[in-house]
């Protein structure tokens, strides 16, 4: 499904078509769940958050001005929900987990290196980790990331640059040079 399909889906929802919400959830529930799981680091908080996210999406979608921005808009809602929940619960920054990197179809010889990468990703500061997760795992564009993170594109680029550099340094220390 491409971005035109997403825009069409958003418009059908804005029109109030019940089946469109089923399609929207079928399409985006899993990506949002995995994103929440990575941000929160535990299933329970992610499960509580995902319900809030869908209710907020339902209630705010009539006001979404540019339906083509659906994906970035939903991830920004998800991020805000998690930040609010974690702020309330623990008053500490969220922990982004890289446990969910999918290892299916990965050649056996890469698994050790991926395991090291997961560990090193976990050790990055949360802001850098989040940037890498959104860009590489969620495949958001820089423009979409500015909307989700609420920072200018220059800041997104500098976070990505810093995160890549730090991760590369950490990986080289562990003997991973890909």
């Amino acid at each position: 499904m491409n971005r035109t399909d997403d825009e069409l889906l958003a418009i059908r929802c804005q029109l109030g078509e019940p089946a469109a919400f089923d399609d929207l959830i079928a399409r985006w529930h899993e990506p949002l769940w995995r994103y929440l799981r990575k941000l929160t680091g535990d299933d329970d908080t992610a499960a509580e958050s995902i319900q809030d996210v869908w209710l907020k999406v339902l209630r705010a979608i009539p006001k979404l001005r540019d339906a083509a921005r659906l994906r970035a808009w939903m991830f920004s809602i998800a991020r805000r929900v998690v930040m609010d929940r974690l702020r309330e619960k623990y008053a500490t920054p969220p922990s982004v987990s890289a446990d969910d990197v999918d290892l299916e179809d990965v050649p056996q010889e890469l698994e050790d290196e991926l395991e090291v990468m997961r560990e090193e990703l976990e050790r990055l500061p949360v802001i850098d980790r989040e940037a890498l997760v959104l860009f590489y795992l969620k495949e958001l564009t820089l423009l979409e990331m500015t909307e989700v993170l609420g920072v200018p594109v220059g800041t997104v680029k500098s976070r990505l640059f810093r995160a890549r550099k730090t991760l590369r340094t950490q990986l080289e220390r562990k003997g991973v040079n890909r």
Binding site: A26, H29, E30, D43, W54
Partner: peptide
């Protein structure tokens, strides 16, 4: 704990009356 697509579809359907 995981929340299924069907759970969420049910939740949202109830909100669409």
């Amino acid at each position: 704990m995981n929340v299924s697509v069907a759970d969420m579809q049910k939740l949202i359907a109830g909100e669409l009356s």
